[in-house]
Amino acid sequence: MRYKAIIIVSFLVINTFVVQAEAYARAIYKEVNMLGGYSDRNEWIGEKGMMLKNSVGFEYFDKFSNDYGDFLTVDLQMRVAYDSQQNSEDAWAVEFHNAWVEHKFGLGKTLRLGHFDPVFGLEPVLDTHGALLQTLAHENIGFKKDWGVGYRSYIGELDYEIAAQLGSGMSIRHKDDSFLLTARVGSTLGTDFQYGISALWGQTLKSMQARTLPVPDLISDDATRKERLGLDARYEIGSFGFKGEIAGGREESQPAGGGLFEIDYIVPKLQALQFKVQQTYWSNDLENSDAKTITLSHVISYKVTSYLTVRAGYFHDVYEESGNEDDQVFLQFYFFG
């Protein structure tokens, strides 16, 4: 009931803002994600981790302005996803990805409300929606986006962003004093070399599934305390792109941390074709040398048209803490346009 009230109030607030406004910057994108693969451990599979499932969805992006310029931006990106790991009753779910309203108080002063990236590491500066290769966000924080409020601005050549969120991920809930505070300072976008420094402090909830509705079960009713510092960087030269991030801190009372490194290559003569290799390392207990996950991933991506991409991926667990090393191959047809 409380959430329904929040949604109704939100719509009323948005309506109040936009009723007198013009909207010329509207974009609607449809999304279809068809994904299938084979795993050594689970045989035929229809999802890549918790974040990428067979799904249909859309993104609605709009900017509202008056005689004095833009003042409000809205982004709603959602999917209806089929989780092949669940029984048929629980398999269908609604996922909210971007679901935010951003109000501009002046140039470079924006306040955001809704479901968006915690501002830590590479995730807030990359678009990994629909991609086979992800950042460390899921291992590090437990989810890619969260509900809350954020503020974004810049000083000189540096951008900065802070966010206060619920610590619950895709579902809206508050339990065991859960919360998530993040901050990131980074170089301005649009240069060959970009970098960022991030900090995180919070108590986050861990869900059994990544979905908004039906509300997923929690793995534990207790929130997990997290403290992190992170560094990230990107560099582009010629047909090559390099990405990396490291994060370290504490998970409850244990030292935790990890890193990611990725090389991308676009074939110059056939620019629709791209190769990517990524290695990730993560440990929630750095004092225990067995408590780590190391994965090596390879992806070939071919853009058939401006809105259809076909990807093939091979994912190899070099080390998995539970001894459940796996090899997976995937084929993905991704429509976004």
Partner: peptide, 29 residues
């Protein structure tokens, strides 16, 4: 629907750098 186009990465900062006297801007697709 539409394909993905070219928008400014950081319009507030970019436009202020290009036009120091700017107070705001309107976006159109």
């Amino acid at each position: 629907y539409a394909a993905v186009g070219c928008t400014l990465n950081d319009p507030d900062r970019d436009i202020q750098r290009l036009f120091p006297e700017v107070t705001n801007y309107k976006t159109e697709f």
